[in-house]
Design a protein around this nucleic acid. Structure first.
Lengths: 344, 344
DNA sequence: ACATTAAATGAAAACGTTTGCATTACTATT
DNA sequence: AATAGTAATGCAAACGTTTTCATTTAATGT
């Protein structure tokens, strides 16, 4: 029987539990990690000992074995608004279902910062990393490859991506919404996108929209090409400026639902009716977009599905299925026509 | 000079770095943790070695010493909407500024789940924990006390809380907004709150509102007391039902800005003008509340300030200042009168 | 009941750091 | 130039697990 001189310590460890249960630490460890390898009756005793001693296992000590840290890292541009929240929640729910805990960090759209965050995540020996999109610094990609960390990119599908990805095709989303707007008769079209530097999602969408418009012989004058940050307030301000200075288009295609919301508010504040006076579209289909008034015509990018699938892909990699790398899952995009647009 | 037979290993460790730099592992370690204790020139050499070897320190191995894990845990009800995002972003920014990484988990308003999450966070040996509000299970409080984990509760101030807290007084917020509504002449008032079970913030707000109304001889009939979940869609549905079946109040006081938004949309959808036909108020002042149209009259709870201050309080605890526990910081609440309300 | 095989458990080494103590290398003082 | 004092570094033990291998215990077939 395992024995040990009792030391006085504030925090119980696996050895205390072992003594309490009359087994060796090895057995306690096994009862956590390979329950079927220990006799049911022994496990019972161990569980009782755990309760009695108030033991909480130390994942750091576990992680040090070079095996499981039980964590995955998530790096997103921001938590500060609705953009990623549906996605994150879904991702988080799924990985937790599999016993992992999530380390989250934000870089505020600064890709150098993103690299630093990745390093810090790796210091914590996360078993996998999820990122947004495909614009990442050279250093980031190098590090990922060098350490061969399981990794998944969420939010946009890319045919020839180096790393696994789950998402829709953003250029297709752009084309689809542009097509929709043209189909319902608009030709006086403004567009509003964020700065597309270091942001492939926005860039692809914007390109998709503009190319489709051009192909259909619709010119968008400079003053109808608005750049705005990803916030309702910024979008609203930018929209107000446009409305004030320039002629009013019959439709505005925006880079996402948050920007669309800002444009709708600006229009309403100006006394315009959406969609009677002006149609506005978003991209993304966040959970509130169907609930607002008017509800927002947008392109469904299925954030929840992306989050869940991405978690699954990552989990597969973590569990050793490295052959299929990179796995690329295309999530279909689809225009959701709602109240914020109207045909003319 | 430190020496070691070179083993073949995929992942560089501190020993490899030490060899490379011609020093002992101890010195490398010190150059991370107590930089001033190592000669500048030595540090230079070590940094070079780190770069050359591609070393990434192992926080798990560090955490095992019983010292710093470099992480703090955050447990929130949900990430899925705007409610906590401003708060979380501020909290996250601040702790990161101090070199910590954040582990985030959500319990979906289930306090038993919260306890399980806390355990899992402690398994990862977070150095501190931040929670929302004061409604937590007995087990949660016990565990916190037993392990004497640095902890801070965010979002509501409580005079005699067991644990440190940073936030506004939710009952005062309720009273303040009720007072405002009465002051501008309303007496036909509906209220809309979420289920207040296991949610002290909502409960306090609701009590504050209802008590103030009662004190001022305003009765709220049952059909004007709406219960709704914290989502725009739910709120909108509940509002629509109320508008359909019952007489229309001149004002609705809601439990937070998300619910307010839902009511505003429902009213607009019904053809009502906010605020001319009906006034609507929220509580919280999320970042989009000032940007919407109409902008939302609400009670400013300063989520960013709360997040930042709470992080600071927690960091203080972590850095050994345990005497001042519990520290309670009251963040002033203040009615922000905006476009969604009008006097009659 | 006995031998054979399988299942359960224990002993001890390993994981990658940090840190107290011992030692060595500098600095300043006389 | 010798010495005391301090700063920088190295040595080795610890931290709390997991896992391989060896051993004991139980189960099976005859």
């Amino acid at each position: 029987m395992y024995n040990k001189i009792m030391k006085h310590k504030t925090n119980v460890d696996i050895i205390d539990v072992a003594i309490h249960a009359g087994v060796s630490p090895a057995t306690v460890s096994r009862s956590f990690n390979h329950p079927k390898k220990v006799l049911a009756s022994t496990r019972k005793r161990i569980e009782k000992a755990i309760l009695q001693t108030g033991y909480i296992r130390n994942r750091a000590a576990q992680a040090i074995q070079g095996k499981r840290s039980g964590t995955v890292g998530l790096i997103v541009p921001t938590l500060d608004n609705a953009i990623f929240s549906n996605l994150i929640q879904a991702f988080s729910d799924e990985i937790r279902k599999h016993g992992f805990t999530m380390l989250v960090t934000t870089h505020g759209y600064d890709l150098n910062d993103e690299y630093a965050l990745l390093r810090s995540l790796l210091e914590h020996r996360v078993e996998g990393v999820a990122l947004i999109g495909h614009d990442h610094s050279k250093d980031t990609y190098n590090l990922l490859e060098r350490r061969s960390v399981p990794v998944v990119s969420m939010w946009s599908y890319k045919r020839n991506s180096k790393i696994s990805c789950v998402g829709g095709e953003n250029d297709q989303a752009g084309r689809a919404i542009a097509k929709h707007i043209i189909n319902i008769g608009h030709s006086q079209i403004a567009v509003a996108f964020p700065n597309v530097k270091e942001n492939d999602r926005a860039r692809d969408r914007k390109n998709g929209v503009l190319k489709y418009l051009t192909e259909n012989f619709i010119e968008v004058p400079d003053y109808w090409q608005v750049e705005t940050a990803y916030s309702v307030q910024d979008a609203r301000d930018s929209a107000a400026k446009m409305f004030e200075k320039y002629p009013c288009p019959t439709a505005v295609i925006t880079g996402n639902d948050v920007i669309a919301q800002g444009f709708i508010y600006a229009a309403q504040a100006k006394g315009l009716n959406v969609p009677n006076d002006i149609s506005v579209t978003g991209i993304g289909d966040f959970s509130s977009s169907a609930s607002s008034f008017p509800s927002i015509t947008t392109v469904r990018m299925r954030p929840k599905k992306v989050g869940t699938k991405a978690a699954l892909v990552l989990l597969d990699r973590i569990n050793g299925d490295r052959e299929a790398d990179p796995t690329r899952i295309k999530v279909s995009v689809e225009v959701k026509s709602r109240e914020s647009t109207k045909s003319i």
